[in-house]
């Protein structure tokens, strides 16, 4: 039962992470290699608020969401001015900076040893469930909140603007709207929803180490987005399911611990390659057919 709850929580977290990344990668067409870093900043902010300021879980979560949005905005403003390549570079750089900061600011973050003893939110008296059961419920609620927000956002004026921007950037600009502003907003929103997952991660693990938020994590999330699909929220659910359950499967098959993670990454690299090639070839063939 505990194992099922564990998988449920991790699955919920990755559903939020993949859906947030999908907004940037799929809807704004900006390849981000920094989703793992946003995941990290959110988790560290939550943990620090709870440990150093003695706040309870929900105010800490809110702070993490707001701060992440601000960080996203700050990162986005210079990066989205130019082209897609610059954005990839900036997010990749951001990824490594956050890693270095978490390692080097050891007074604040505990350095490479990590940050331990993050308290779990106390279960309300009237709920007859265990600690992890309560966290599962919290995760579920946050997943619903994140998905509803993202869904409404895509149906709103904002979402239509985003679609217009991707379909024809020049026309969008000519109609008097700013692509830079819109892209920056998308990144801020994505960072904010990512923070929902990181807050739960912080209290669920009760221990944060820099290694959990490195490039591997970003690649992991990117693979989830590419596997599921770029446009619909339910595709994000599929992507999250695959990336969470696949390593569990590998572990169940008994791969040695030292090879496991590297093996998984090689596999994810291959998945990215094959997926892209497949999409490109399929589109080419359907274009050919239309032309005939």
């Amino acid at each position: 039962m505990e194992y099922v709850i564990h998988i449920g929580i991790v699955l919920g977290l990755y559903m939020i992470l993949v859906a947030s990344a999908q907004l940037v990668i799929g809807h704004a067409r900006l390849i981000s290699l920094g989703q793992g870093a946003f995941f990290g900043t959110g988790a560290y902010v939550t943990a620090l608020c709870m440990l150093n300021l003695g706040w309870s879980f929900f105010p800490a979560l809110l702070t993490a969401v707001v701060l992440n949005a601000v960080i996203g905005l700050l990162l986005a403003l210079p990066a989205v001015r130019l082209k897609g390549d610059y954005f990839v570079l900036t997010t990749l750089g951001f990824q490594f900076i956050i890693f270095q900061l978490t390692v080097n600011l050891d007074r604040l973050t505990g350095g490479p040893a990590g940050l331990g003893g993050i308290p779990s939110p106390s279960t309300p008296q009237f709920l007859p469930i265990s600690q992890s059961g309560y966290l599962f419920v919290v995760t579920l609620i946050l997943v619903i909140i994140a998905f509803t927000a993202l869904f409404l956002l895509q149906k709103s004026r904002f979402g239509r603007n985003l679609k217009a921007l991707c379909d024809h950037e020049l026309l969008y600009e000519i109609s008097g709207r700013s692509p830079i502003k819109l892209r920056a907003q998308v990144i801020a929103v994505s960072a904010a929803t990512t923070a929902l997952a990181s807050a739960v991660y912080a209290v669920y693990m009760s221990y944060l180490a820099p290694g959990a938020f490195n490039l591997d994590q970003s690649i992991f999330i990117l693979t989830g987005v590419m596997l599921g699909g770029l446009s619909r929220l339910r595709q994000a659910v599929v992507g999250a399911l695959v990336i969470v359950l696949f390593p569990e499967l590998m572990r169940a098959m008994g791969l040695p611990a030292t090879y496991g993670p590297s093996m998984n990454q090689v596999f994810f690299g291959l998945v990215l390659l094959v997926l892209v090639s497949f999409t490109v070839v399929k589109r080419f063939q359907s274009n050919e057919r239309r032309n005939q």
């Binding site: 390849i31 690649i219 994810f268 690299g269 998945v271 990215l272 390659l273 892209v276």
Partner: peptide
Amino acid sequence: VASVGIMI
């Protein structure tokens, strides 16, 4: 993305 894949 293909390039990221082969890099990884």
